[in-house]
Computed example of a mutant assay.
Amino acid sequence: MCFTRHRFVSIAVLLLMLCASRRPVSASVVVPLSLAQLTEAADLVADVTVIDIRTMPGPDGVERVVQLQVMSTWKGGAERTVFVRLAGGRLGPTETRVAGVPVVHDGDRLVMFLVTHPRGGYSVLGLHQGALAAVTGADGTARVLAPARMQGARGDVTRAPRRIAELEGDVRSIAGTEGAR
């Protein structure tokens, strides 16, 4: 009996070693970006509403092309409609999931920090950090949980939902677009 258990354990360890050698282990760390870093790196910062989501095959799996109606541009061009490419989604029997990529639904209101995508449209800057979901309170005021105002504010417990109008003022100040609307 002891021989059989020993043999089983040996085979299990060998199989685990073979599996581990074929699949490299990797990990990612998302470093929190400050509001200034997001604003400075973005090509477009806007208050948007999701109006359409299309799932299609992409070069690295399934991707979603999200059409956004721009309600207000805080930095960048004055486009009324833009497209954002988001990795992941479900297309028939194929599903691709990418950690950190924002999840959006038709009708969602967001503040987005976007960079130009090489295949057209835009990508969200800093994964989920560049897509701030707006929540409307009982008083009718839309708020977002905005990034920390200063760099290196990991785990900043003083962050609280801010009115979109306040965030807009901060972004415009950083971007140098205070007078533009």
Rank of each mutant, 00 (worst) to 15 (best):
G176N: 05
T94C: 00
L68A: 07
E40K: 10
R85S: 12
R181S: 12
R85V: 12
D156K: 05
L125W: 03
P24M: 00
A160F: 09
G137K: 15
P93E: 09
V9G: 04
V65I: 14
L38Q: 11
E95K: 13
G152V: 06
E95M: 12
R162I: 00
R23L: 11
G100C: 08
V29K: 08
V45N: 07
E40T: 12
A138H: 14
E79A: 14
V13D: 02
L16Y: 10
L14P: 01
R149H: 12
A12M: 08
E79C: 00
L14V: 09
F3E: 15
P102T: 11
G89Q: 01
G107H: 09
L127D: 09
L14E: 07
R5V: 12
M1N: 12
A142I: 01
G120S: 02
A27L: 07
V13P: 01
I11G: 00
A148T: 02
Y122K: 05
R5M: 06
T49N: 11
T55N: 09
V101P: 04
D139K: 00
T55L: 12
V48I: 12
V65P: 02
L86G: 01
P57D: 15
A12C: 13
G58E: 10
T136Y: 04
V115I: 15
R149M: 11
L44Y: 04
A99R: 14
G130C: 07
L15K: 09
T39H: 13
A175V: 05
T4W: 05
Q67G: 05
I11V: 13
L15T: 11
L145H: 04
Q67S: 15
G77K: 12
A160C: 07
L18A: 15
Q67K: 14
T94P: 00
P57I: 05
R90L: 03
R162T: 05
P118A: 06
D108E: 08
D139F: 01
F3R: 14
F8L: 14
A46T: 07
L125P: 02
D139P: 00
Q69E: 15
G155T: 12
R80D: 10
S10T: 14
A142P: 15
L18S: 10
R159E: 04
G121F: 09
I174T: 09
V9K: 11
A160G: 04
Q129R: 04
V135L: 09
D139I: 02
P59G: 04
M1S: 15
F83M: 01
Y122M: 07
A146M: 01
L16N: 11
R143K: 10
G126T: 01
V25K: 11
A131L: 11
I174C: 09
V62S: 04
G137W: 15
R162M: 15
V48W: 06
T96G: 07
L14K: 03
S26N: 06
Q129G: 01
P59T: 08
R90E: 10
S28W: 12
V13C: 05
R80L: 06
S34K: 05
P93G: 06
D52N: 14
L44N: 01
I11S: 06
A78L: 13
V98Q: 13
M71L: 14
F8K: 14
V84M: 08
H117A: 13
S34R: 03
A87M: 07
L18I: 15
Q69L: 12
T4V: 11
L35D: 02
P93L: 06
D47F: 05
V50R: 10
D52H: 11
A87W: 06
T94V: 13
